[in-house]
Structures are given as C-alpha cells and as structure tokens.
C-alpha cells in the first residue's frame, strides 16, 4: 500500500510539473519545474530498483544539463513580453485549429495507451521475473556495461568529446581567435 501511494505521488508530481513546464511564460520557471520533474522521475527509478540510474539522472540531467539551460536563459535574457506576443499571434491559437489539434492530441494519447496496454504481460506486477538484489546491484551493472556494451561506451565517450568541441566552436563569437 505505501508503494502504490509513493508511485501515485511521484508520477503525479512528474506529470504536473511537466505540464506546467510547457505552459510557463518565463523560461526560468520552466527550467526549475523540469528539475522538479526529474527529481520525481528519479524517485520512480528508485522504486524500479535502479538506484544507479536514479542518481545518474540527478547528477547529469538535473545537476549539469539543467544548470547549462539555466545559464543560457540567464545570459540570453530574452525579453518576456515578446514571447507572450508571439504565443498570442501563433497560427495554432485560432479556435478551429486549437480544437482540431486538441482532438488529435487526445487521439494520440488514447492510441498510445491502447498500444501499451495491449502488449503482453502488462498486467504483471513489475518485479515478477528476477529478484531485486540482482537488478539493483551496481557491481553487476558495471560488469555488464564494460563487457557486453563496451563498444557503445567508448563510442559515447567520443560523442561527448565531439559535442564539447562542437559547443565551444558554435558558441564562439566571430573573429574571436582565443
């Protein structure tokens, strides 16, 4: 019973804060609400016996990527009134389009839910096949990561290096040789 309550609270927080993220005028608030959503998702990962993924999500996503977003929002300092103006004159804001778009979105959600629920074994509680000690062990996770997936690991490290160099080059001012 407390498990179910924790699940509902955490998923409620995650969904509510994500819905608020896309509805905020101020991008600063959006970033902070998304950090809250990541925290709730980390709680869900812990409930799914994935403590390493939960902590990695907080360290990398909420602690580094979102700080980067925050810096960019602060430094760009785009005026907020223009954003509101553009949202108001957006072509999708006309009532006919909005109703049609809303109907399509509802159809999408219902289709996704139907597709996911008609998969096999969906009613089984999560934790049916293996014990939680196996799946929650970081040592075994590391062993699998570095033996079966070592190629993907090394490729990811090169990808991050490329992204670092690319970000520095793209954000440089023109004529700046430093």
């Amino acid at each position: 019973m407390p498990e179910t309550l924790v699940f509902y609270v955490l998923s409620g927080v995650a969904i509510a804060t994500s819905a608020l993220v896309i509805g905020q005028r101020n991008p600063m608030y959006s970033v902070l609400l998304l950090v809250a959503s990541f925290g709730a998702l980390a709680g869900l990962y812990i409930q799914l016996d994935a403590p390493f993924v939960a902590v990695a999500q907080i360290i990398i996503y909420a602690g580094a990527v979102m700080v980067l977003f925050l810096f960019v929002v602060m430094l760009l300092n785009a005026p907020r009134e223009d954003a509101a103006e553009w949202d108001r004159t957006h072509p999708l804001r006309q009532p006919a389009f909005a109703r049609f778009g809303g109907l399509l979105a509802l159809v999408l959600v219902l289709q996704l839910a139907w597709a996911l629920l008609s998969a096999t074994g969906v009613d089984a509680p999560v934790a049916s096949r293996a014990g939680s000690e196996v799946v929650g062990s970081v040592r075994a996770l590391g062993r699998t990561l570095f033996t079966d997936y070592v190629f993907a690991f090394e490729a990811t490290s090169i990808l991050i290096l490329v992204a670092m160099v690319g970000a520095v080059v793209l954000a440089r001012r023109e004529g700046d040789q430093s």
Binding site: M28, P51, V55, I58, I59, A62, A64, V67, L70, V138
Partner: peptide, 23 residues
C-alpha cells in the same frame, strides 16, 4: 548502496541555490 553518489548529487543541487540567488 550508492551513497557516495548521493552525496555528490546533492552537492550539485546546491549550485541552484547560488545561481538563483544571484539572478
């Protein structure tokens, strides 16, 4: 069982307090 990483994760959350205070 990932206690060291939790300390590190919460320390990186501390950055938010300072950057938000400044802005």
């Amino acid at each position: 069982n990932v206690g060291v990483l939790v300390v590190f994760a919460m320390t990186s959350m501390g950055v938010y307090g300072i950057v938000l205070a400044g802005w």
